[in-house]
Structures are given as C-alpha cells and as structure tokens.
Design a protein around this nucleic acid. Structure first.
Lengths: 159, 159
DNA sequence: AATTATTAGTTGCAATTGCAACAAGCAACT
DNA sequence: AGTTGCTTGTTGCAATTGCAACTAATAATT
C-alpha cells in the first residue's frame, strides 16, 4: 500500500512537463488563429524570426519534429507569405529559411502571448524560484536532446 | 544590442518545456510501437491504468486533449483490446474507462520507459535539484490548468 | 576517377487531430 | 409539467503528422 503510493506517478516531472506543454500548445494554437497561423506554426515562425537563415534541418531539430513535418510546415508558411526559402550557396541540398515582413509583424504578438503564459505559469514563484526553474529546465533540455536524435535516427535505447 | 540580448528567448522556460515534451513524446511513440501502441496512446493508457474508472472527460482534461481527440483515442484503445468502456450508473451521458489485462501487461513497460527518460533528463541533478524541479513543475502545471480550460471553452485571455 | 554511403528535402499513404455541428441526457428555470 | 440551457460523447470534414520511399547532392571509400 505504502509502496504503491511511493511509486505513483503523481510527482513525475516528465508527466508534468507533458501536461504543461500540451496545455500551452492548445492555448497558443487557439489564440494565434487570429493571425492566420495554423496548428504549431508559431513554433516555426518564432525560431525563424529569431534566427533568420536557419536551414530546415536545424529548424526541425530545434523544435524536435520529423523532417517531413518540418518540410510541410515550412512549405505552408512560405505559401502564406510568412517566410521565403533559399538554397545554400555551398551545398545545394540545404535550404535556408528567412522571415518576411509579414512574419516580423506577427512575431511580437507571439512573444506577448508567450510572456503572458509565462506569467501565468510562474505565478506565485519567487525571483529565485523563477531563476531556478529556468536553469533546471535548460539542463533537462540539453540532457534529452541527444536521446531524441539517437532514437529518431533508429537507435534503440536499453532499459 | 544589449536589450536585444536581454529579451532573446534563450532562457524561456516555456520553450524549454515545449522542446523537452516534444522530444520525449517523439521518443516514446517510437519505442512503444513494439507494444502495438500508436501515437500518443501511451498517455491515455497510463492514466487509465493508474485511475481505473475515469470518465472520458476526466481523462481528456488530465492530458489536455480535445474532447473529439479523446473520444477517438479511447475508441481505438477499446478496439485493440486495451480498455473497456461502461456508461455511468447515474448519468448516462458519461462513460467510464477501465483497463483490460492487456493494458495491465503493457503498463509496466510504459513505466520503465518513463523512468529511463526521467533518468536521462535529470542526469547531473543533485537530489535537492531533483526535488526542486518536481515541485516547481507541479506548481506550474496547476498554474496553467485553469487557463487551458478557460481558453478551450471559448474564453479569451487579455494581454 | 569511379563507386558506395550518407544526407537534406520531398512526397505518397494512412493515421491522428481539432473545429464545428449534432444527438442524447441532464440541470435549471418558468 | 414544459421549456430552455448546458454537458458528454460522437462524427464529418479538412488539416496536420510521421513512416517509408524517393531524388538529388555531397561525403567517404576504393
């Protein structure tokens, strides 16, 4: 009985991360419809505005989406005038992605929404706690990135 | 220039949460294919095994998915023998969800994967830091839940 | 130099997702 | 009791996602 309680995932950090992410993604998708952004596009658009010239592969890796998914999302953003694409000068296999003026107008709205969600999420946190959670989350992100790459490329984790 | 650096989302906690979640979800979906689980089903199955008898609505709220999505995922799990559904005794609008033996056999594998991913994510964390991040994340989850509900039901956030 | 292996982006196919509308059931009001 | 409003689960439709296969380009090997 006590053991059962000990092992219940009620305090599972990864689950909390999953739920928070899902909630905020759901909120964002609803709120960004007014800017002509479809599901998930805000993630791509943010990255492209912050790091103009990223290749498609780099973009997909930052967001942790499948290459096919990245391609199609980027195609849509291009079709709706948010971005433009250009081949790399040295390596014609690669394409770089640049924001258009349309994107740069929407980006501050994305930031505003994100700040608001951040305020909500960190409500009741002291300044120290805010710093702490930021640092801890960044370390976690670094910790899991290689695993995603490994498994995505066909690697099999042992456990 | 300095201002621009200050406002760069490099230390955005919500973004880190989104990336971590996406990475771990991607990994989990790949790894659970061997158990006949399709995309995202592990989230539902875990909840159903841990809280047998949840209604569909409760389940969807815990995971933060759309009602239609929950319905369809649950239908699939039922069709593949992982769960069974029953109407509520008092309110025939509601359906409760129960795990089958098949589900109870798979659940420990889901837990094992989750434990492994947790180990990876928390690599290099002291015991104190582990406790900290768990607590902070739980509080964040609580902070955002009402917002999800509000926006999902049509509420409009001001910011 | 020629061949083989790997990589980046793309597309077909099928599954999943979410909005909107609907039906059935229950709650609240008159 | 009858009417209106709300809730739960479902379905149609269209968009998104991810696996697998493909093409073109580049890297590595022979």
């Amino acid at each position: 009985m006590i053991e059962s309680v000990m092992h219940m995932p009620g305090d599972d950090p990864l689950r909390a991360i999953g739920v928070i992410a899902k909630a905020l993604d759901g909120i964002a998708n609803i709120e960004f419809k007014q800017f002509d952004l479809t599901r998930g596009q805000y993630m791509y658009l943010s990255r492209i505005c912050e790091e103009p010239g990223l290749t498609q592969t780099q973009l997909g890796e930052r967001i942790k989406v499948d290459r096919a998914t990245a391609t199609r999302a980027i195609q849509q953003l291009e079709a709706h005038g948010f971005i433009r694409r250009e081949n790399d000068d040295q390596d014609r296999k690669q394409k770089h992605v640049w924001p258009t003026e349309k994107a740069n107008q929407v980006y501050p709205r994305i930031r505003a929404e994100n700040e608001h969600s951040t305020q909500i999420a960190l409500q009741g946190f002291s300044a120290t706690e805010q710093q702490q959670v930021k640092q801890l989350l960044l370390r976690m992100q670094q910790n899991v990135s290689d695993n995603w790459d490994f498994v995505k490329r066909g690697g099999v984790r042992k456990y």
